[in-house]
Amino acid sequence: MRMMNTDLRAEPAATATENLPAVELRGVRRTYGKHGTAVNALDGVSTRFPDAGWTAVMGPSGSGKSTLLHAAAGLESVTSGEVLLAGTDITAASDEELTSLRRDTIGFVFQNFNLIGSLTAEQNVALPLRLGGQRVSTRDARDVLASVGLADRSRHRPRELSGGQRQRVAIARAMITRPAVLFADEPTGALDSSSAKSVLALLRDMVDTSGQSIVMVTHDPAAAAWADSVLFLSDGRIVDHAHSPTAPGVAERLAALEV
């Protein structure tokens, strides 16, 4: 077992001197429902997702992983606490500010792809730039699709693609704006292991060659092993943190949490 640097504190001391974190959460709390039946989906979470790093978020079902991701990306408001994206507090950001963040700074990949069914792969990929008011040549979109290995599928509609291919289109769509932070919620959840591998390799490449950051929720220890570090959530709290994870090590900790 090669699991190292186990640290139950939310914030690893080592990152303190590094440059600005991509995303920082300070005492974030998210409560759903009314007083009587309230659920604390996030219960005081503080952490930093390092710049040019890939952080996996794991935990039992219902532990608050998706909520954490949505809060960090400004998709979900938080009940209390602060969320900082590239140093700016987005807790009270206006819709325009959040929209422009989504355009320029962050990207999303989700388990169920979320492509627009009526658009071809290349139109889906070009969409974020078009929405940003940029003229996109078909070449640009095709180049990005080629980089995810789908050069010959650019004119297909989502339903004519396999699950793995759709997810790669979604990643291409997220890549085209070169977001500083990519948020991914179970991006390989619906894929077989070889499709998953090609998707994960693409993500790894984004971090290593372009210096982008990734926050990825996953249930799969093998997927988590591709990341630089892993956060473990349970009942809305960060309960563990691992660096340079391996699949068996992650699986073991996860099993311990789910008992």
């Binding site: 998709l75 422009s100 989504r102 999303f108 979320n114 627009i116 009526s118 974020p128 929405l131 769509r173």
Partner: peptide
Amino acid sequence: RDLALLRLTGGNRKQ
């Protein structure tokens, strides 16, 4: 859902 997706990929309300 399609409209929400446009918002997710960076569309603003005006668009």
